[in-house]
Design a protein around this nucleic acid. Structure first.
Lengths: 126, 126
DNA sequence: CGGAATCCGATGCGATACTG
DNA sequence: CAGTATCGCATCGGATTCCG
């Protein structure tokens, strides 16, 4: 806004285009979506594989989250008419592009986790 | 994990270090924290300024979120004993480093928002 | 002005049971 | 195996009221 030129400054997007950012965080910011996306990064996975790889997720939430990701075009759902049935989930091109900023956030998280923990202990001790 | 070297691969951090990433998303992934951080990027702001700049946030949630951010050491809270009282919030060094990955996510959001919207319409129309 | 306290509805999420 | 349906709890978040 204090930028004379018309060049889009990503530093102002968080506040100026808040709704869009929030829309993305509503998808990615919940308890499981990011873990699902991270588990799918290496290639297609079956429902049960995802469940086992993630660990601790109920089948209900796994189903719901996969539906949401599918709706937004971040993953594809492929059903194979076999017995027993087999369903595979895979990241779309759009989903794979999301991996980049997500990894950036993950890197920040692992790098600064201990400092945050220390801050919390200090704050709680007051 | 399939990386022979000891070099940390950020691409595996989402799934392997899920808890830490989730911890960060629990702070940043809620409805307002990111907007608050984005609004604070230009410098210190008073409580009322934040409220007005963000728009639509209740004072309850603004207070709560600011406390959480303060607890994690992402913002500082400075109280000036005046009448009427003045309280200023400012990003810490740690908070400013968080801006980078957040901007990356914001850039992705603005770049791909329309595609996501289109995907949703297609999905909902089935 | 900045914030704490309370009430309340909406949503997230897990546990369980059932189905093609 | 991969869901769907239903329940019940916990948390999120808004509106309102009171306080220093």
């Amino acid at each position: 806004m204090e930028d004379g030129k018309g060049a889009p400054n990503p530093c102002d997007r968080v506040s100026s285009e808040g709704p869009k950012v929030r829309e993305v965080l509503d998808r990615v910011g919940d308890k499981w979506s990011l873990l699902i996306i991270g588990t799918l990064q290496h290639g297609p996975r079956r429902f049960g594989e995802l469940r086992q790889a993630i660990g601790g997720i109920s089948q209900r939430m796994l189903t719901l989250n996969l539906r949401h990701l599918e709706r937004d075009g971040l993953v594809t759902r492929s059903v194979y008419a076999e017995v027993p049935p087999r369903v595979e989930y895979e990241l779309t091109r759009l989903g794979r592009t999301l991996l980049e900023p997500v990894f950036a956030l993950a890197a920040w998280a692992t790098a600064n986790y201990s400092e945050i923990e220390a801050n919390r202990r200090t704050f709680d001790a007051r």
